[in-house]
């Protein structure tokens, strides 16, 4: 199954979840749910089209799991630690540590002369 179909299927599942579980649980009454349901229908229609149509071209997604794990996840982890640090230690100390650690993570080193 190509990428467009996976994307269509994924969004259709999201639409089903919204319609059956989330909207009834988070709204009270038909008026409140009107625009969210309209938006879900608007989301479901192109998702269904992407699922059933023959895709006009097969363009691979620009996503490499290995690169994601080795580069993006550490950045995210460091930033999460930064936020936690701000709430427990304070802004200045956390920021100083974050700046130093992220420079090291990205390989920014200067030789001593």
């Amino acid at each position: 199954m190509n990428n467009d179909r996976w994307i269509g299927l994924g969004f259709l599942i999201l639409c089903a979840l919204m319609w059956i579980v989330i909207i009834p649980g988070q709204t009270e009454g038909a008026d409140e749910a009107f625009v969210p349901r309209l938006a879900v229908i608007g989301l479901a229609v192109p998702s269904l089209i992407m699922l059933v149509r023959r895709p006009p071209s097969v363009t691979p997604l620009n996503f490499d799991p290995g690169t994601f794990v080795r580069s993006t996840l550490p950045v995210l982890g460091l930033f999460i630690a930064y936020i936690v640090g701000v709430s427990f230690v304070g802004f200045y100390v956390s920021t100083a540590c974050f700046l130093v650690l992220s420079l090291l993570l990205f390989g920014e080193r200067r030789a001593k002369h």
Binding site: F11, E32, G42
Partner: peptide, 27 residues
């Protein structure tokens, strides 16, 4: 299709908060 998905995602996000008429919490 992707444009419409993006628009509807934006619309859904805009409904978070409270109902504009009733003032009751929503999403």
């Amino acid at each position: 299709c992707r444009g419409l998905i993006a628009t509807c995602l934006g619309l859904l996000l805009s409904t978070v908060g409270c109902d504009p008429e009733m003032g009751t919490p929503r999403f």
